[in-house]
């Protein structure tokens, strides 16, 4: 009991503490990919920038626009963090497993599925055209990515024979990494993951160039920050899940003897996928709304269903 409680504290603490450095790294990476240098002023090479940002956001005036639906307006940003942290609580990092759950993978999917309501309700309650359109886009996007993502995971689950993260890693320790068996599922899941957290090139709900600020146009101060906390925690959680499903999680050389090394491996693998989201953001322009729905429904959905058959055949032979 106490062990689980400590693990939960560790994971929630890690999620909350990791977000500011990740925002800093993102700005640095994006900057260097465009031959800029990113934040440089606050602290050496700007390392204290997130702290400065936090101070600014905390002391900023909290505005609730006239005509806004107050209840939902206040509810939406907290819901974003809430859903993201719930998803984080079931993901094991190495031997640190706060809530061991038989259907952990499904739980993460369910929580990330309902996290889209934060965007949707923020868009609706702001009483603003741009936010409203962003909310509509968020809703359409969730309908687009949820199915291919679900089917891609289904293929993986058929292969591993379990929804339990610990079982999944155990399977990979004996049979080898999941990506060698399910490359298609990996690619689909990766793309859907980017769509899920609304990052470029699928950042339609917050398309700055078209919708001012998207769903958070009317938000300021800590409520505004809460959306970003939710978004970045979601990125971390899904990166952890990708490395669990396709890259063996905490397995690696000497990880059996030293469990701490396993935690490190897992975080490193997840770190690569967090970096990948920055990389994608620096490289690709935003998809148009109809293009996004087209590739989701017409390409990835049939592909992911086809992939289930491949997985079934593999499961027959590998067992």
């Amino acid at each position: 009991m106490i062990e689980h409680f400590l693990s939960l504290l560790f994971i929630v603490g890690l999620m909350l503490v990791a977000v500011p450095p990740i925002t800093y790294l993102e700005r640095k990476v994006l900057g260097h990919m465009q031959q800029r240098s990113g934040p440089m002023v606050v602290g050496p090479h700007g390392v204290l920038q997130p702290i400065a940002d936090a101070i600014k956001l905390i002391f900023k005036e909290d505005v609730i626009p006239r005509g806004a639906d107050k209840l939902l307006f206040v509810f939406a940003p907290s819901f974003s963090v809430f859903a993201a942290l719930l998803a984080a609580s079931v993901v094991p990092i190495g031997f640190i497993n706060a809530v061991p759950m038989k259907s952990g993978l499904l739980f993460v999917m369910a929580m990330s599925a309902i996290s889209i309501y934060a965007f949707f309700l923020a868009g609706y309650s702001s009483n603003d055209k741009y936010s409203f359109l962003a909310g509509m886009r968020a809703a359409a996007q969730v309908l687009g990515y949820e199915l291919p993502m679900g089917f891609a995971l289904m293929a993986v689950v058929i292969l591993f024979g379990s929804f339990d993260f610990n079982e999944i890693v155990k399977w990979q320790q004996t049979h080898g990494w999941g990506i060698f068996y399910q490359p298609i599922a990996f690619v689909i899941f990766l793309i859907m993951m980017v769509a899920e957290v609304c990052r470029p090139p699928f950042d339609l709900p917050e398309g700055e160039s078209e919708l001012v600020g998207g769903f958070h146009t009317e938000y300021s101060g800590m409520r505004f920050a809460a959306f970003f906390f939710g978004e970045y925690i979601n990125i971390i959680v899904l990166s952890l899940v990708v490395s669990l499903l396709f890259f063996g999680g905490w397995s690696g050389p000497l990880a059996d003897k030293h469990p701490v090394l396993g935690v490190l491996y897992h975080l490193l693998k997840a770190g690569f996928f967090i970096f990948l989201t920055f990389w994608l953001r620096a490289t690709f322009p935003r998809y148009r709304f109809d293009q996004m729905l087209n590739i989701m429904w017409k390409i990835f959905l049939p592909l992911s269903i086809l992939n289930i058959f491949i997985a079934a055949v593999e499961a027959l032979f590998v067992g």
Binding site: K102, S103, L106, A110, A113, F120, V142, F163
Partner: peptide, 25 residues
């Protein structure tokens, strides 16, 4: 556990989104 999660995912994650999406138009 399983039914609970599927309940949240299917009804919460997909069906209500569809309802709200239709209502907002």
């Amino acid at each position: 556990e399983f039914i609970g999660i599927v309940q949240v995912m299917v009804y919460g994650g997909a069906i209500i989104v569809l309802y709200l999406f239709a209502l907002m138009t």
